[in-house]
Design a protein around this nucleic acid. Structure first.
Lengths: 349, 349
DNA sequence: CTGACACCGGAGAGCGCTCTCCACCTCGTG
DNA sequence: CACGAGGTGGAGAGCGCTCTCCGGTGTCAG
């Protein structure tokens, strides 16, 4: 019946549904939100009315009164000018790291009806944008992945009293929740395995020194090796990209031709290192054993990479969980979750 | 002065700013939105008041009346149950393809203050979620990347009258804007290059036949080769993943040992093919020339891959541009943009 | 000097929703 | 039989903003 349809143009509103169902706006709202009891027959009538009108609640109107949006910002923060050329967004999204984090976040948020809003913060301006975005009430909180330790964004968020959870421990301690990996323990796993394999001349290719995780992996590895009676471990610094792993490996072999085991601080660099080793005619793992970190690109390597697995998806999901808890309860305590890595043995070591 | 501060708890509102500036709410709104002239001294006063109160407009309230959100949905659509095991989100985000599209979208949207909301649609339920999301007014439109041709989402969007732009031409024609690559022309570029190089026994590894782009690349290549006097081109089907490229290459060489040139329908598979060739002891490009497609993983290959470049970032930006135009003007005509690929010659061919 | 007109600020009506009251209507109990 | 407790629906007040009117003022031509 055409009289049942809303006569105002545009989308049907609560009012329209109420009229069709012959109840008040408040009752429809109650049925939709499942708050308080509503008589079964009235519920039924309301549901029918919703179906016939094709009603969908207006998110803006709802947000206006609930002060909740059902969205969280997923922000990748870092320095935009780090390496000229490519814009920040290209570098970020090309990294499988981001993909796995996004995957974990989405996996957790999706069943809960929350949507992540992608944001990049690579300058003072864009960092302020993130803060504004949250203050505007465009999102309920932020999941922040920083690409380097000294990122000022976390502090801005804390100072503004905005719910936020970080990926990885911030360089200087601030009261903010985060999820991180036990990097040192992971590096030790690699050291143990290399030693158990019988490697006697072991080296490492580390990540950039200004990244806390890279430092931890390096020092954790060195310490563990020291514990095994190898106080000196040659190390070269990479930038977590494949090319630097390749270059690093060449340098290592040149300076220490008798190396028989290498711990590389991430899989991408390990991939490069494997390439270098092949070019140099060294067999893996017979001549040189290689262990990566992350388990992100390990299976596409030749030979498949033995690596320290970082359960990024789970960690990202945990971030999301912490954030939602914080949004739901403003007094929720600052929490840090440290996840244990595992060693995945494949063929390279 | 404490009397200047808003006495209501919570964030300052327009009303607070107005009181501090000694003007009306409407005037503050005008200053903020730059609509209509406002006397310079009053503008000044308002700006000062905004600064002292720390005012940030509430997005929900604004959306409620403007019916605009400043957000668009970036949805990746496909079949969730395609290959058991890994959840859809993992596969999607692990693909460099997604990263580059996201990068292009963000690059265009960011300077315009629009934010993309990440959504996955891999089932009837989640497709409806996307439609609801837009109908709720949570986003102004959708950028849709489908992983296969028969995706029902585009039609749902069109039927609901929602602004949307597709990545790639839909399998069956529906009135919706899209951005696509001239796949056949790209494949022809590869064919021309292979022939010009002197390859005489050429084969191809294609993408999955149910993906229109894969079909186009295959038939475009076959046609171009026919034009060069090679009516028969051996072809094996892959799934756009590295492993299938490797397997495909093995099969090709086994069935046609004298092959001296291969066109692989994407770089990921080409990467696998290169691995296979190396294992089989064939030199690239001396024994077998290899050309990829996309220019996504080309530089990390050994040897660096000659490939047909698909300017994904530009294409994604174009999608965003079309979407915003459509959002701004509902009568905006359905438009399809076809982008021309280019051949990037490196070492593999 | 007056009327016309452009210009600019204020008042106020919503946008669509939630949620607090409040009224009513059962029951159960003394 | 009366009365309070508990459950259930409606009325209405906003949430913070935009935008349409409206009215006051300044300017200039007639």
């Amino acid at each position: 019946m055409s009289t049942d349809l809303p006569h105002t143009s545009g989308a049907p509103t609560l009012e329209d549904v109420a009229r069709v169902a012959g109840v008040s706006r408040a009752t429809v709202s109650r049925v939709i939100n499942g708050i308080r009891n509503v008589a079964p027959d009235i519920q039924e009538a309301v549901h029918r009315a919703i179906a016939t009108t094709g009603y969908v609640p207006n998110r803006a109107a709802r947000s206006l009164v609930t002060r909740r949006t059902g969205a969280v910002a997923l922000v990748v923060s870092g320095a935009g000018d780090a390496q000229g050329g490519e814009p920040f967004e290209s570098r970020v999204f090309a990294d499988p790291f981001f993909g796995r984090v996004a995957s974990g976040v989405v996996g957790y948020l999706r069943p809960r009806g929350i949507h992540p809003v992608l944001m990049l913060a690579d300058s003072a301006q864009t960092r302020d944008d993130v803060v504004s975005f949250l203050r505007q009430g465009s999102a309920d909180g932020a999941l922040v992945v920083s690409t380097h330790g000294e990122d000022p964004l976390p502090k801005l968020l804390v100072d503004a009293g905005l719910p936020a959870v970080l990926w990885a421990r911030p360089a200087r301690p601030i009261p903010i929740s985060y999820v991180d990996l036990a990097h040192r323990a992971g590096a030790a796993l690699a050291a143990d395995h290399l030693v158990a394999r019988g490697c006697r001349r072991v080296a490492t290719i580390s990540g950039p020194f200004d990244v806390p995780a890279a430092q931890d992996r390096l020092s954790g590895f060195q310490e563990a090796m020291a514990g095994h009676g190898h106080p000196y471990v040659p190390a070269v610094e990479g930038d977590f990209m494949p090319a630097s792993g390749e270059a690093g490996m060449h340098r290592l072999i040149k300076e220490h031709p008798d190396i028989d085991g290498v711990f590389v601080a991430n899989d991408l660099m390990a991939q490069g290192a494997l390439l270098a080793l092949r070019d140099l005619g060294r067999r893996v793992p017979e001549d040189v054993a290689v262990i990566g970190f992350d388990d992100s690109a390990a299976v596409t390597c030749r030979p498949p990479l033995t690596t320290v697995r970082q359960p990024m998806e789970d960690m990202a999901a945990e971030m999301a969980r912490l954030l939602l808890a914080q949004v739901a309860d403003p007094d929720f305590q600052v929490t840090s979750v440290i996840v244990q890595p595992t060693l995945v043995v494949r063929e390279s070591a």
